[in-house]
């Protein structure tokens, strides 16, 4: 979808030419190496990158080699510079990507993360080489179910910061969650780890929208997965407009068996950029639970 023309407030951007894997690629000034790779058709894996968020470049799975640099460079955040020579797929980048996948795979449950299993194969990653759960540290822990709208399963959390950024300054500005602690003990938390109902959470679900691994999940989805009835192949997605206030947020309804099982919002829509409020995100029950006759 291309958004309707908005009055331009900036001058047209200059084009910058860089070299990716031997080919010249021209992209607008200000684009990232990742943007350039997309233009070039180069597949670069990403986990912490969010299309609606400032890059935190924390996962490091998107690293590339930029000639003249001592270390590898996160493609999601580094802006192109004229004449940059980028190698995306050599032994060095493949090694770091493999290690990131292995390190994450050894400590986090990635089974609900889209694409990851494919990358594991592509990069020949073997997370089991570090030992088993009894001999090494993982983030395994019980699922947090403290409200009826969404659950938090931090066994699946790769600490990409996206939920924190969506809850915080970049979008929702509720600041209910943060990264607490340090090092391997760093974790997503409310203050003193109080439950969501005692926190500043307003249940907009904008954290769920950006979570790349299923650590944050609609309770409906969680319950259906537990009951083995979650079937994405059977689901349809339909984008419509929220039935509540007059802002006109676009909702994408995920339906299975004529039931709404999840609500998202298009990330490329200028009204929401993927964000909703509690009414838009969770206010669909009235069309399916009430006896309407």
């Amino acid at each position: 979808m291309t958004m309707m023309h908005e009055t331009p407030v900036a001058l047209p951007r200059r084009a910058v030419t860089i070299t990716i894997d031997g080919d010249e690629v021209k992209v607008p000034e200000g684009a990232t190496i990742l943007d350039a790779c997309k233009v070039h058709g180069t597949d670069v894996p990403t986990l912490c990158y969010g299309d609606t968020l400032d890059p935190v470049n924390a996962c490091r799975v998107c690293v590339v080699e930029v000639e003249g640099n001592r270390v590898l460079i996160p493609s999601c955040s580094r802006k192109v510079e004229p004449g940059m020579v980028v190698n995306t797929d050599n032994e060095r980048t493949r090694h770091s990507r493999r290690m990131v996948l292995e390190l994450l795979g050894s400590s986090v449950d990635l089974s609900a993360a889209p694409n990851v299993q494919g990358w594991m194969q592509q990069y020949d990653a073997d997370p089991a080489r570090f030992g088993d759960a009894n001999t090494m540290r993982t983030v395994q822990q019980p699922v947090k179910v403290d409200n009826d709208l969404y659950v938090r399963d931090y066994s699946r959390c790769i600490l990409c910061y996206k939920c924190v950024d969506a809850c915080g300054e970049q979008w929702q500005n509720s600041f209910a969650i943060t990264v607490a602690g340090r090092g391997f003990d760093a974790h997503i938390s409310t203050e003193f780890d109080v439950g969501l109902p005692d926190s500043a959470c307003v249940y907009c679900g904008n954290c769920i929208e950006v979570c790349p691994t299923g650590a944050l999940m609609f309770k409906t989805e969680h319950d259906m997965r537990q009951a083995n009835t979650w079937n994405e192949a059977e689901q349809r997605q339909t984008t419509t407009v929220c039935p509540y206030c007059g802002v006109g947020c676009n909702l994408t309804l995920h339906t299975q068996d004529n039931t709404i099982v999840k609500v998202t919002s298009p990330h490329d829509h200028a009204i929401t950029s993927g964000n909703l409020c509690i009414k838009g995100r969770f206010g669909f029950q009235h069309v399916q639970t009430f006896a309407r006759d």
């Binding site: 770091s96 390190l103 090494m136 760093a186």
Partner: peptide, 25 residues
């Protein structure tokens, strides 16, 4: 290093733990 890693990036956050575990073994 395991204690002092800030935890932001995966190579250091998990890598310093795996390094220590392997060294201990």
């Amino acid at each position: 290093f395991r204690d002092e890693s800030c935890g932001q990036c995966v190579p250091c956050r998990v890598g310093t733990v795996r390094q220590e575990e392997a060294l201990v073994r």
